[in-house]
Design a binder for these strands. Structure first.
Length: 597
RNA sequence: GGUCCCGUAGCUCAGCUGGAUAGAGCAUCAGCCUUCUAAGCUGAGGGUCUUUGGUUCGAAUCCAAACGGGAUCACCA
């Protein structure tokens, strides 16, 4: 049984025995601050009404009761209303013995939950390469997927490609105007990069055209309206919608270049979707649903025959769902995709990993689906995350001020190589092993750097400052794992032997050992919380605490040269369990840990 | 202007379902490799938790307002 659960029950019992008034509230414990003796602290202030006594007396009552009637504590002290309990070694050891052989994230029954969850990410546009913002999206999505899996859910990775429309037309137009038939092969460029370059070229040319028109005395608005380039983009989009053979051909070709480029990036990140959706497939499907809603009176039609929904009673606005020419807008397509997902899979939950700039959009989307009476509407969740900003502000693809995903990944791996070589840690590694290690460390540093920040918050990335490999970082945690593995190897014990050894119940624990068991006991709770709050950062910060505590333990105490055999074996067990927990926690962040580094 | 998010050490971030003297990392300074991996450990300095009110025995945490920053409110996606 969980340690705190034992204490909760004991305190409840104590209250019922000691006092006549019934206490109906929650019993909550906190970790004892390190300047006081003990590990578990009960704040007695909320219990004063029940006890009818002052804080000190109440704390003393309860402490004395626990001391005399349970085997849970070895001693206690109280300061004002804080009852600090020193947990009995046997409690720690029993708990540790129970979780030691458990390989399933410390969950008692981590079998299948029977629930299916879809998680959609990163859903890029196909007119430009992936950048740092996509990386945050991918890291969050793939990590959350691992967390859901750890909880026993079936996870379906989905990705929606915004593969048509204005943005893609811009890249196509620039290719036609300035491309001279360029291909990835002829230029040696990665497909997504090539297409992205044309997108930027379009933006530059367009900006210049508008500027020229303004020089001729036009207002900005008029200049934008009169832009010949913008008109050509629009023509291309219309031609695409009219199934113009040539346009469709070019569109297909350029999108395939992009997909090939994306696949390379996905490969280096180790991600793969189970199901892809394409806007070009669904962009007209939403229309039917809108007409259905119109019938039901959920939507209304204006004179120009555009269709709207009035959400003012829900504190939102009027929202267009169908253009006057009968074509779909963005949200119509999302309605269609939601329907598609529901009909393809039996989903208990469907998560969209999308930046917080679309908070309003998803609020509206979910509300519309609910008003349409879609049963699945209650199972939709928008995992909204903050933008990644540069010191100069927001990244803008159009202006080329983006941190390219491939460049960043490559740079991280390079740094890992340099650092590892400098530290002389490549000895005894084959070229392949070394290569894998650099990748593991470089990607680990990057992933951890991004995942340790609360998803909701915007985060800053300074390209001038390289991502650290020391301190609160992925490599620090990876290093700790490798260090423990080295100890385990030298112990000459196999994992099964370590797991099977019994611990003497009269073993006297060192404070550093207690700290580790205490932290290990939090793992389950952290995963549960990370799932319910959709927040991998909780796991990231937890595993750092654990690694830090282990290093402190490692420096203060010797494992293999312990005072006696019993102590040595126990410390090997603790080390093993810490390494496993680090490995599993990092797995939840999609970061691999090395056996040596 | 309406709505939403954010404001904690020089910098990057934890802590936020109210609890003790607010924590890490980086950077700075001082120590520790003849002992299990120094990508490590130990210590020092560094704070008006943006401000002002309120609720409470108790507020970084909850409520309100102000200030500062950001997002969004398209027949764009």
């Amino acid at each position: 049984m969980d340690i705190l659960q034992q204490f909760t029950e004991a305190v409840k019992k104590a209250l019922s025995v000691l006092y006549t008034n019934h206490y109906a509230g929650e019993i909550s414990f906190q970790k004892t601050r390190k300047e006081f003796d003990g590990e578990v602290t009960l704040v007695v202030f909320p219990l004063l009404k029940t006890s009818g006594k002052n804080p000190e007396v109440t704390a003393n009552d309860i402490g004395t009761y626990l001391q005399q009637n349970t085997n849970l504590i070895k001693k206690f002290n109280f300061v004002k209303g804080f009852l600090n309990l020193s947990v009995a070694d046997s409690v720690w050891i029993n708990y540790f013995s129970a979780i030691l052989p458990n390989d399933r994230f410390s969950f008692e029954n981590a079998g299948s939950s029977g629930l299916s969850v879809m998680i959609e990410y990163p859903s890029p546009n196909t007119n430009k390469p992936l950048h740092l913002g996509h990386l945050r999206n991918i890291f969050l999505g793939s990590s959350l997927a691992e967390i859901l899996k750890a909880r026993g859910h079936k996870v379906i990775h989905a990705c929606l490609y915004n593969d048509r429309g204005t943005n893609i037309s811009k890249s196509m137009l620039a290719w036609k105007l300035f491309g001279n038939g360029a291909t990835p092969e002829s230029t040696g460029k990665k497909g997504d990069k090539l297409v992205g370059d044309f997108y930027v070229q379009y933006s530059t040319a367009y900006k210049k055209e508008v500027e020229d028109l303004k020089q001729k005395g036009l207002s900005e608005e008029d200049a934008e309206k009169q832009s010949a380039l913008a008109k050509q983009v629009n023509d291309l989009t219309v031609a695409w919608e009219n199934d113009d053979k040539e346009v469709r051909e070019l569109w297909k070709t350029m999108n395939n270049w992009v997909y090939q480029g994306f696949d390379k990036t996905y490969n280096s990140l180790g991600i793969k979707a189970d199901k892809n959706y394409y806007e070009s497939d669904v962009y007209n499907l939403g229309k039917q649903t809108v007409l259905e809603g119109l019938d039901k009176g959920i939507f209304y039609q204006k004179e120009d025959s555009s269709v709207w929904i009035d959400l003012t009673t829900d504190g939102l606005d009027h929202k267009l769902v169908l253009r006057s020419n009968g074509t779909s807008v963005y949200i119509t397509q999302d309605i269609a995709t939601a329907n598609e997902k529901d009909s393809h899979f039996k989903l208990d939950k469907s998560i969209y990993v999308v930046g917080n700039e679309q908070d309003y959009h998803f609020k509206v989307l979910f509300l519309i689906l609910k008003k349409l009476g879609r049963k699945y509407a209650d199972n939709l969740y928008h995992l909204s995350y903050g933008m990644v900003e540069l010191p100069t502000g927001k990244m803008k693809s159009r202006e080329g001020t983006v941190v390219d995903a491939d460049d960043l990944i490559e740079g991280m791996i390079d740094t890992a190589r340099e650092t590892t070589t400098e530290l002389g840690k490549t000895e005894g590694l084959t070229a392949t092993e070394a290569g894998n290690l650099y990748k593991m460390l470089g990607l680990g540093a990057l992933r951890y750097f991004i995942l340790k920040v609360d998803p909701k918050k915007k985060m800053l990335f300074d390209p001038a400052e390289s991502i650290d490999f020391n301190g609160h970082t992925g490599p620090f945690i990876q290093y700790t794992h490798a260090r423990i593995q080295s100890v385990i190897r030298k112990s000459n014990l196999q994992v099964e032997e370590i797991k099977a050894m019994a611990i003497a119940t009269d073993y006297v624990l060192h404070q550093k050992e207690i700290e580790l068991i205490y932290l290990l006991s939090d793992f389950k709770k952290i995963i549960t919380e990370a799932e319910s709050t959709y927040n991998p950062a909780l796991v990231a910060n937890y595993v750092y605490e654990l690694a830090k505590a282990y290093n402190s333990f490692y420096h203060e105490l010797s494992v293999l040269n312990a005072d006696n055999e019993q102590q040595k074996l126990f410390r090997i067990q603790i080390s093993y369990k810490c390494a496993l927990t680090i490995k599993q926690a990092m797995q939840l962040l999609c970061v691999e840990v090395p056996e040596r580094m």
